[in-house]
Computed example of a mutant assay.
Amino acid sequence: MDITERIADLAAPGVEATGLVIDGVEVHKAGKRSRVVVTVDLPETEVGSADLDAIAEASRAVGKVLDDADLMPGEYLLEVSTPGTSRALTERRHFMRARTRLVVIDLVSGDKARGRLTDVTDDAVLLDGEAGEVTVPFGNIARGQIELELKRIEED
């Protein structure tokens, strides 16, 4: 088990206690110290954004685990954040978290599909676009991207 997996395994209970889940862990050497980047998010069943207080609590929990387990030799810089809207949607769980958002999907055929992500099934995503509701099977998706909106659907 590599260091990123060990960090994720040890930190998961503390992060989950804050209502978040670990989305990814990266460790980079930065001179004499290491930079540990832990990405947290709401569980895939949730819609919305992670609360800043929960992110701060998760950061403290991860820091305590790293210090107690003495996993990082020497000094390290810990960054705990969310994936943000710029993350590529490449896995089912990414699309689950993007429900209600406006997305653009690059299809393996080279075409694009655009619309509001209304649902995610085991094998497809459902978009509500200009042409109505469209089902896009995961096998046809190269990647997706959330389109940044200045006015969210909840404000309509």
Rank of each mutant, 00 (worst) to 15 (best):
D9C: 03
A11Y: 02
P13I: 06
P13K: 04
P13G: 05
V15N: 02
A17C: 00
T18W: 02
T18N: 00
G19M: 09
G24R: 05
G24A: 01
V25N: 08
E26L: 03
E26V: 00
V27G: 06
V27I: 12
G31M: 00
V37D: 12
V38A: 05
V40D: 00
D41C: 12
V47F: 06
G48M: 08
G48I: 03
G48P: 03
S49P: 06
A50D: 11
D51Y: 04
A54V: 12
A58D: 01
S59H: 04
R60P: 05
G63R: 08
V65D: 06
V65E: 12
V65Y: 10
D70E: 08
D70L: 01
L71I: 05
L71S: 08
M72H: 02
P73C: 02
P73K: 13
Y76A: 10
Y76F: 15
Y76L: 03
L77W: 01
L77E: 14
L78I: 07
L78E: 09
E79V: 05
E79Y: 09
S81E: 03
T82Y: 13
T82N: 07
G84Y: 07
T85Q: 08
A88D: 09
A88R: 12
T90A: 08
E91S: 14
R92A: 09
R93V: 07
A98K: 11
R99H: 00
R99Y: 05
R99Q: 10
T100C: 03
L102H: 13
L102M: 15
V103D: 00
V104H: 02
S109L: 06
D111V: 04
D111I: 10
K112G: 01
K112P: 04
A113D: 02
A113I: 01
A113V: 01
R114L: 01
R116H: 11
L117G: 08
T118M: 14
V120Y: 07
T121V: 06
T121F: 11
D122F: 06
A124K: 05
A124V: 02
V125Y: 10
L126N: 03
D128N: 15
E130C: 03
G132A: 12
E133D: 11
P137E: 13
F138A: 06
F138H: 09
N140M: 11
G144H: 14
G144N: 10
Q145W: 00
Q145F: 06
